[in-house]
């Protein structure tokens, strides 16, 4: 039976540091935290690197930890059969902008729009950055912890 293995944070961080210095912020057991401003660069590297080969973006999530937002990218390589978790901390509450990974993975299209809609993090470079679930003109971002 085939088992997809998770790449450890150390491995990922090492590769990333080599290619894109100063992009890694932190690393834990099986995840790596990167600089949010450089997420698109990191994404492109993760996708195009021969050994990493993360062609498939499983999901993009955002979690509201009150003092910061965590952006979580679950990635899979179909050829190499390994997965990785890449995260980024976005500090602040208003006017949050993070580069979009739309150009790297089209699959991020609806999920980034959804994050903007429900969490209020804008993605720069997304061609159609508008609300997806709620209507235009809706006030607030309901999935935030301070939205009641």
């Amino acid at each position: 039976m085939m088992q997809v293995k998770a790449l450890s944070g150390d491995q990922l961080a090492e590769r990333l540091e080599q290619a894109l210095p100063d992009s890694v912020v932190d690393k834990i057991s099986d995840e790596v935290w990167v600089e949010p401003a450089r997420i698109a660069e990191v994404a492109r590297f993760l996708k195009e690197d021969e050994d990493l080969d993360f062609q498939f973006l499983n999901s993009v999530s955002a979690v509201d930890f009150i003092e910061y937002f965590a952006l979580v990218y679950h990635l899979t390589s179909l050829r190499k059969q390994h997965t990785a978790i890449v995260k980024a901390k976005v500090y602040g509450r208003d006017e949050l902008v993070v580069p979009s990974v739309y150009q790297v993975w089209r699959g991020a299209d609806f999920q980034e729009r959804e994050i903007w809609d429900l969490m209020g993090i804008r993605f720069a470079g997304h061609p159609n950055m508008k609300r997806i679930m709620l209507w235009e003109g809706f006030e607030g971002h309901p999935l935030r912890k301070d939205y009641l």
Binding site: M1, M2, Q3, V4, Q55, F56, L57, N58, L78, Q81, W105, R106, G107, A108, D109
Partner: peptide, 27 residues
């Protein structure tokens, strides 16, 4: 290529010639 880039999964992905099923890959 398009299917993978768009994060398509399930029968649609397999119909595009990609042999990828989580039941096999991560039982």
């Amino acid at each position: 290529e398009m299917a993978i880039n768009c994060s398509v999964s399930g029968p649609v992905l397999r119909a595009s010639g990609v042999n990828w099923d989580w039941r096999k890959m991560d039982p």
